Simulated assay, not measured.
Amino acid sequence: MSTRLAIVSSHPTQYYAPWFSYLSRQEQLELRVFYLWDFGVKAHPDPKFSRSVRWDLDLLNGYQHEFVPNRAKNPGTHHFGGLHNPTLAQQLGAWSPQIVLVFGYGWRSLLNLALQWRQSPLILRGDTHLLGRPRPNRVRTLVLRTLFTRFRSFACVGSANRAFYRAHGVPENRLFDVPHCIDNARFAAATLEEAAAWRRAHGFDAVKPLFLFVGKFEQKKRPDLLLQSFKQSALSDAQLGFLGDGEMKPRLLRATSESDGRIKVLPFHNQSEMPAALRAADCVVLPSQGSGETWGLIVNEAMACGTPALVSDHVGCAADLVIPGKTGWQFPAGNRDALTQSLLEANAAIRTRRDELRASAAAHIQAYSYETAGTALRKMLAEVL
């Protein structure tokens, strides 16, 4: 007998759409995804990328889905009111799911669903953590403790996320490990030839270690700190690239203009271009500071390409994915001198152990796959039912 599972998600993403397709092919699982916005499959402005974005992958193939009309005056996931879907409960009810898996709670529609839905059990999948947060606000803590009583179980994406739920009173028997994952196979397929061509196309030396920042050029991700640390390191035998877009781009361009070509701000890449870029890098750097970097799925993508990562200890995936000296390096968030030292250590390791580091990263990420997460989810559903 099949389990009828509804998933409620903000919008189609390159991370989850292939997983939904994978889950839909599993026996004894009938799946339908309810999207609250069409960002990604239609072009919409992304305030943090400072541009309109439409991904060049098919994000709707291989699984049942429907869009719930978004009536927000200013649609988007960058603010609480950006997802306002008055017919969500009605559309869910018409499909009659046995379980509803909700991705997040920080938007109007998802909060309303958590408070009002009574037809079937709710499961929560989020990636919030306590890393880099100020002292907990007692009112916020009380509100979250109350909200979390509305969910039967919690799909924890990693250890920091699990600790967040525990800190808000969720008992252990309601916590299940369903690890954060991406389409490992798509990234692993990037070849050495594609990586070499990418380096040539963007003016990077074919041999010198290449550090790559990938993401939105915004304050929480601290590309400025990476730039300062790289310059402080005086690594004349290494290169640094900034791949993305956002409000800090003009500042980065000005600062890299006198770098003798060792530091480059690269053009925005769409999704189909990312595997070659990540395979070309020797280390992906994510120096985020504060609680905003809930996981850092770019680290999954990099490791699927066999590329280690250097991350701050505020990045949600740090404890799970980044094994110092083996799959990458960690440093205390916001500490320029510590990041400088980590860059020096990483550069030396890449020069002497490049193949070993790549193999370790690629092997470690296999435990964070659609298959692993799917097996864990099916076990969770069986427990809930």
Rank of each mutant, 00 (worst) to 15 (best):
H11P: 03
L36M: 12
W37K: 01
H44W: 11
K48W: 06
V53T: 09
D58K: 04
D58R: 00
E66L: 07
P69F: 15
N70C: 13
N70E: 01
H78M: 06
N85I: 03
L88A: 11
A89C: 09
L111M: 11
L115R: 08
Q119L: 04
I123L: 15
D127A: 14
R138N: 01
R140F: 00
L144S: 02
R152I: 01
S153G: 02
V170C: 09
V178I: 10
L192H: 01
A197Y: 05
V207R: 14
F211W: 02
E218D: 10
K231Y: 09
G246F: 12
P250F: 14
L253D: 01
T256C: 15
P267I: 03
N270Q: 12
Q271M: 05
M274N: 03
A276D: 14
A276F: 12
D282P: 04
L286P: 00
L297G: 12
M303D: 01
V311K: 02
V311F: 00
H314G: 06
V315M: 02
L321T: 01
F331P: 07
P332N: 13
L344F: 09
L344T: 15
N347L: 12
R351C: 09
R358S: 14
S360M: 08
A362V: 00
S369L: 01
T372S: 13
A373T: 03
G374Q: 13
A376W: 02
